[in-house]
């Protein structure tokens, strides 16, 4: 089982779209996959048409009242399940803080699912917090969508510093460009330059497109309702790239 997390300190960069589309790709290739919607806004749950509500809220979850397994919902897609968001996730930091070794908690909760899923994708809320730290501990790789702006570069640097500070060497950070508008000079420049400085950047870039925005109307992963779209093709190749990289470790 590999645990991936779509994460960025900034919001609105395409984390949830990536989590939803990549998980769909994994499942459609035959890998049992789970998405955990950790964002209290519940966007991933919305895309899968599942109510963002957990029995017992996040308290029941963290205090170990409910096994994760009984809270999981099957999506409309074979092999693809979701652990829905809950509005109470906004207090997840406080709840974690209440536990011994708070940053180990998510990993501990996911452990029993090891034989059930090949991939678990955590869709994380923006910010850098105790929850993020727990995600970093649990995950094998962080998928970091970045809009090619100078501000994004700063946040990537922040993230890398944080990784170093917390001695999270085994965590693989895989940034990729998201919402790229090749007509913008700055986008072009950053997309061309960054991989030279930071060699872990994934080659595939997700273009800015109305297809992705329309996922909110369809409330489904792109691949389930379009066959030929630039964005779908981009997510396909992004998944192939991630999948390849994960084979190596």
């Amino acid at each position: 089982m590999k645990i991936l997390a779509t994460y960025n300190i900034k919001g609105g960069v395409g984390k949830t779209a990536a989590a939803v589309n990549l998980s769909w790709m994994a499942a459609s290739e035959g890998y049992p996959t789970l998405v955990w919607d950790l964002d209290p806004q519940g966007a991933a749950s919305f895309y899968f048409r599942i109510k963002p509500k957990l029995k017992g809220g996040s308290k029941g979850l963290i205090k170990g009242k409910h096994e994760l397994d009984v809270l999981i919902k099957g999506t409309d897609f074979e092999n693809l399940d979701l652990l829905p968001a809950d509005f109470s996730y906004r207090h997840l930091d406080l709840l974690l803080d209440d536990q011994k070794k708070p940053t180990r908690q998510l990993g501990k909760l996911l452990k029993p699912l090891e034989t059930d899923y090949d991939y678990i994708i955590l869709d994380c809320p923006p910010s850098i917090s105790l929850v993020s730290e727990a995600v970093f501990q649990a995950a094998d790789a962080l998928l970091v969508p970045m809009i090619p702006t100078t501000l994004s570069l700063r946040t990537l640097q922040q993230l890398l510093r944080f990784q170093k500070q917390k001695e999270l060497e085994s965590l693989r950070i895989m940034p990729f460009f998201s919402m790229v508008d090749r007509r913008k000079k700055l986008h072009q420049q950053i997309v061309d330059e960054l991989p030279k400085q930071y060699f872990n950047v994934l080659e595939t870039e997700i273009p800015y497109s109305s297809d992705v925005e329309q996922m909110g109307l369809h409330r489904a992963p792109l691949g389930s309702y379009v066959t030929k779209s630039r964005s779908k093709i981009a997510y396909d190749s992004l998944w192939q790239e991630i999948h390849q990289r994960l084979q190596g470790f």
């Binding site: 890998y31 049992p32 090949d118 084979q247």
Partner: peptide, 22 residues
């Protein structure tokens, strides 16, 4: 309940399955 899936024919031996939990 689905315990594993392969987008191909059943191989002769499980060692011929692609790497993964299945």
């Amino acid at each position: 309940q689905l315990m594993g899936m392969l987008m191909a024919k059943v191989p002769r031996f499980p060692r011929d399955l692609p790497e993964g939990p299945m």
